[in-house]
Computed example of a mutant assay.
Amino acid sequence: MTRLKLPPWLVLLLPAILILMAVVLIPLLLSLYSSFTSYRLTRPDSITNWIGTFNYEKAAKDENFWAAFGRTVLFLTIALNLEMLFGLGLALMVSKVTKGQRLLRTVMMFPMMFSPILVGFQFKFIFNDNVGLVNNALQSLGLSSTAIPWLVDGKLALFSIAFAEIWMSTSVFGILILAGLYAIPQDPLEAAKVDGCTSWQSFRFVTLPFLMPFIYIAMAIRSLDVARAYDMVQIMTNGGPARRTELLWTLIGRTGYVDAKMGYANAMGYISIFLAIFFTVYFFKKLTSARAELGMGG
């Protein structure tokens, strides 16, 4: 009887493949299967109750789901654009510093080192109605006579969460754009200066096109993070008030673990994955286009 002999490369990769199957592939397939069932956490035997596409059809008609979907897109659009603008400004300022630049780069990375849960607790205290630093500062300066309900008013609560998200993640854009600034060849900038271009013209037509690939990479990374935002929202507002700050993954978490409707929650989760895929594909297409304009290939 001949023994099966695996190639050496497969033997080396086999432990990693088995771990990935156990940790990623099997739970992924199980969650996909359960999205076609009436699976409830309180009734484990319901995972065998096949109901076809009922959960997906229910999500398509669910006003709460589409409200959370639209709110997530709005939150993602605002957060990404402001993080990009602030990160660009931060990188440009740091690149102009001649002394202590290493220290500034290190300090710039501090916010992204904090856990989103820790940042959520931090800003929940900062925006607190009674003892929050923001309200105390505004009242001390005479800019407000009453406490502003930052985390109770629907619009202000979403703004507060966006502020915390931008504070934590602007440095991602800053670091990547700063790397792009260091990679820019000096010849085009010197040629623009010789041709009499202003600082704005040099930035608009020389520097910015070189930075666009780095910006799109940062946007692709951050779009995945923001699209699945959960922990910071859960800590700061728990989706309130009256679900006005409920994003996709807080709604999915509530449906799956509070209402125990895990099959329905998984169906909403797979629908929301398309949001992340859409933004990722979009930004990678823009990245390819930006690289092609610079003659860097597709």
Rank of each mutant, 00 (worst) to 15 (best):
I273K: 01
A79P: 04
L103R: 11
I273T: 15
V107P: 03
G154L: 05
L30Y: 10
L141C: 11
A229Y: 07
G154K: 15
L20C: 10
L158A: 03
F278T: 15
T106D: 07
R222E: 12
E57Y: 06
Q234E: 13
R244F: 05
V194S: 10
R228Y: 10
L25P: 00
E293W: 07
I277S: 04
F54L: 12
P15S: 06
I175M: 12
F284L: 15
K261D: 13
I177T: 00
L29Q: 06
L247G: 03
L41V: 06
P185Y: 07
K99F: 13
S144M: 14
I26P: 02
T198M: 09
L138K: 09
R105K: 15
F163H: 05
F163N: 04
A260I: 05
T106H: 07
S31Q: 10
I26S: 03
G52P: 02
D45M: 07
V281Y: 12
F75G: 06
M262F: 13
I235K: 09
Y230R: 08
A179L: 05
Y182C: 02
G120T: 09
S289K: 13
R43M: 07
V11I: 14
F279I: 06
G70T: 10
A183G: 02
L25F: 12
Y230T: 05
Y56W: 09
K96M: 12
A60H: 06
P213V: 03
K261P: 00
L30W: 10
A67R: 14
A68T: 08
S272V: 05
L158G: 01
S169Y: 14
S144T: 11
K5P: 00
N136M: 10
F278E: 07
P188N: 03
Y56N: 06
I277K: 10
A157D: 03
R71V: 07
M112K: 12
I184W: 01
A265T: 03
Q122G: 06
A164N: 04
S144K: 13
M219P: 01
I161M: 02
V23P: 03
T53S: 11
G120L: 09
W9Y: 11
A68W: 02
V233Q: 08
R243C: 02
D187T: 13
L85N: 07
G263V: 05
S169L: 13
M108P: 02
F283A: 03
G295D: 11
F36D: 02
V97P: 04
R204L: 11
K286I: 01
L88C: 00
T72A: 10
L90T: 15
L133R: 03
L103F: 15
I175G: 00
V152R: 14
R243N: 13
S115F: 08
P241Y: 09
Y270T: 03
